[in-house]
């Protein structure tokens, strides 16, 4: 499965969820698949997607509310990016936000920097998440990804979905040149409206 195929599946499954996506090719490809206000693209700050998603999850979490008012906060990370800030794993395991879901698209290379191999060629990042206290699910093909993602949404606690994908970037995907302030503002407005809507419909 190529990254863009995985992103097509994730985009279809996350229309109503806040999604924080790591920089460069992953952000570009997700925007090419579906550019929506529930996407927070990190245009730089490689490695920070998991931390940002953790912060949003903590900000939305209410004691006893399980998945929080809007369901899971989804981080889409790459293996190279996660390895830049692996602290996100023990931090998530320690703070245990019930509404945090990290999807790791692991192609074992730095996809945006000439395909240089990452530690993921020898280190199982899913096991690292397991050791840090996350619930870990795994997927390799499209069907498995659909099914595992659906299951991940039903679990409480930080959930780590480890997805093996092929190396390589989708061709002819335009660069993402939007002003980060605009990206932040539209995400913030979307999340505000979504939270209000969830509060109104809550039993």
């Amino acid at each position: 499965m190529k990254r863009i195929q995985a992103l097509q599946i994730l985009a279809a499954a996350t229309a109503d969820l806040p999604v924080v996506v790591t920089c460069a090719a992953t952000s570009r490809e997700l925007a090419a698949v579906a550019d929506r206000p529930n996407h927070l693209y990190l245009l730089d700050a490689m490695g920070l997607a998991g931390s940002v998603a953790t912060g949003i999850a903590l900000g939305l979490e209410r004691p006893g509310a399980g998945n929080g008012p809007v369901g899971k906060v989804v981080a889409i990370e790459g293996d190279g990016s996660l390895l830049m800030n692996p602290n996100v794993l023990p931090t998530g395991g320690f703070l245990t936000p019930g509404n945090l879901l990290m999807v790791l698209l692991d192609n074992q290379v730095y996809g945006s920097t000439a395909g240089i191999p990452t530690y993921a060629t020898r280190i199982d990042l899913g096991r690292l998440a397991e050791a840090s206290g996350w619930s870990v699910l795994r997927a390799t093909g499209p069907e498995e990804l659909r099914e595992s993602f659906g299951r991940a949404l039903t679990l409480t606690g930080p959930v780590f979905l480890h997805v093996r994908i092929e190396p390589g970037n989708a061709p002819d995907v335009p660069k993402l040149l939007e002003d980060p302030v605009v990206i932040a503002r539209r995400f913030q407005d979307w999340l505000h409206d979504r939270t209000e809507e969830a509060a109104v419909t809550a039993p």
């Binding site: 924080v20 931390s51 940002v52 912060g55 949003i56 900000g59 931090t91 932040a184 913030q188 939270t195």
Partner: peptide
């Protein structure tokens, strides 16, 4: 990243 993201929520 963690504390800086709070305003988004």
């Amino acid at each position: 990243g963690v504390l800086g993201a709070l305003p988004l929520a």
